[in-house]
Design a protein around this nucleic acid. Sequence first.
DNA 1: CACCAGGCAAGTA
DNA 2: TACTTGCATGGT
Length: 211
Amino acid sequence: MFSLLLDHFGPQDWWPAETAFEVMVGAVLTQNTNWKNVEKAILNLKDKGLLSFDALCTLAVEDLAQEIRPAGYYNIKAKRLLNLIDFISTRYDGDLTRFLGEETRALREGLLSVKGVGPETADSIVLYAARRPVFVIDTYTHRILNRHGMAEDEATYHDLQELFADHLPEDLALFNEFHALIVQAGKHYCRKNPLCDECPLEKWGPDLSRT
DNA sequence: CACCAGGCAAGTA
DNA sequence: TACTTGCATGGT
């Protein structure tokens, strides 16, 4: 599946951000939201010089909310971003580098302890900001695997993550590119209509549901 | 007009 | 434990 997707779409060059901090912010802002809208929010922060740990530290939640409006759910996302900032401030004295340098397990658990950071957001930060080989699962991943008979409707986040961990080498570059390709491919899979001809792996690949 | 987007938490029974 | 609902803008 990886080869088929890579051959068709080419390298995705993820995560689209200049710094690890920007990855963290983007990971929260993109929750259930189109990336295009997140870009507008990120640009607002950049234009006003607010896209840094220290700047967000001293910013009121209402002010942050206004800047990130285009990303949707702006009130709750402003809180979530500040929850993350508070966590790093209190547990790591505001040292983002030290936080991201934590052992992978501790880093992930720490992120998950922050209110507003669930498994996908945590793993996105672990993979794309801290550059550790964990596989990020999202709704597209579930839908595509399910569509090809490789996962049940009821499969949990952990189930799906385990599936990739059990069948792929633990390789940072592979996990990085594969998840990005799944997101790209997933955009062609409609919610209804199983096996429509818009599904990339249906069209270009062998019938993976029989393998 | 309806539907969707790179989720998560809180409420209800 | 198992569903359901709120959060909200912008694109198709």
